[in-house]
């Protein structure tokens, strides 16, 4: 939807004129409109969090139980059976610290991908920048992440792992995770409106992606000649970086950082434009 504003302020002001007309080709991101609807992002995030564990017995403890159970399974498979080394870091912390950014990513990604379809009643009834929907889905994943990180801190006390000075980078790595999750989520959510196949594809994708990321095994387990190819997966830099920033150990190769950051940003920016382009037909196709 093209919204050319004659005056400087946004769609909620009484003194401005909106022009509604067909759009063709690529259109601007109209981030100003998004900014004016920032409170809606907040409210939708808040709703997703409030509703998520309603009518569950264990409530928000699921945010802890899920990664814990995953950790137990992974440790059994990769530790007891495959016997993959984790260096000096206790295996429990090794796996758990990687599962945190991974779960934030995969949960945000799959929630965001489904978000447009599950909020279709809003899309067909009210105008607002549609971007707020996937954004809120991604942000609501942060709460689970924060709950789980409390457990991680507890585990670190238990195993007496010292926090290195690099821990200040953690928020930036989390931000990068969100950027990537939103980027992929934007593409998938727009596709999902047209092709519901996407909803069936995502569980498979995240499972495969999980195994292709250094979660239960370290990056060093990958044969040297394959490492560059492996690092094209932007989650490699994120997961390794998160573990390194929190626990120390081998520094992450520079190439992994560069690839992670540039691919994440590329996916998000392209996702934003693609989403905006598809947005005008959302209400008609949903």
């Amino acid at each position: 939807m093209t919204t050319q504003t004659k005056t400087t302020e946004g769609p909620l002001r009484s003194d401005e004129t909106l022009i509604l007309k067909p759009t063709t080709g690529w259109i601007s991101l109209n981030l100003g409109d998004l900014w004016r609807y920032r409170e809606l992002v907040y409210f939708l995030t808040w709703r997703d969090i409030l509703v998520r564990y309603k009518q569950t017995l264990l409530g928000a403890s699921w945010a802890i139980l899920q990664p814990l159970m995953q950790m137990v399974v992974f440790n059994f498979l990769f530790g007891n059976m495959a016997n993959i080394p984790t260096g000096e870091i206790p295996r429990a912390i090794f796996t758990f610290s990687a599962l945190l950014p991974w779960n934030l990513f995969s949960k945000s990604l799959s929630d965001a991908s489904r978000s447009l379809v599950s909020n279709r009643s809003m899309i067909t009834k009210v105008y607002f920048p549609r971007l707020v929907i996937p954004m809120a889905s991604v942000l609501s994943g942060v709460v689970d992440f924060l709950i789980a990180i409390v457990i991680l801190i507890g585990m670190m006390f238990y195993y007496q792992v010292a926090v290195p000075a690099t821990a200040w980078m953690l928020p930036l790595i989390v931000l990068l995770t969100l950027v990537l999750a939103l980027g992929v989520g934007l593409w998938f959510s727009a596709w999902n409106l047209h092709y519901r196949d996407v909803a069936y594809f995502i569980p498979f994708l995240t499972q495969f992606w999980l195994l292709a990321s250094p979660i239960a095994y370290p990056l060093s387990e990958i044969p040297a000649q394959w490492q560059t190819l492996y690092m094209i997966n932007p989650m490699v830099g994120i997961v390794e970086g998160f573990r390194w920033a929190l626990l120390g150990g081998d520094p992450v190769p520079q190439l992994a950082w560069i690839l992670s950051i540039s691919i994440s940003i590329l996916v998000m920016v392209s996702g934003l434009f693609y989403f905006r382009r598809m947005e005008r037909t959302f209400a008609d196709t949903v």
């Binding site: 093209t2 769609p11 401005e16 004129t17 022009i19 067909p22 009834k125 105008y127 005008r280």
Partner: peptide, 26 residues
Amino acid sequence: SRITEPSEGYAEITGRVGSLLEVGTG
């Protein structure tokens, strides 16, 4: 109310539009 965009022609709207296309949305 800007839910869907026109295929041709245009509309000019001055002021905030509130739509009660269906109450209880969301």
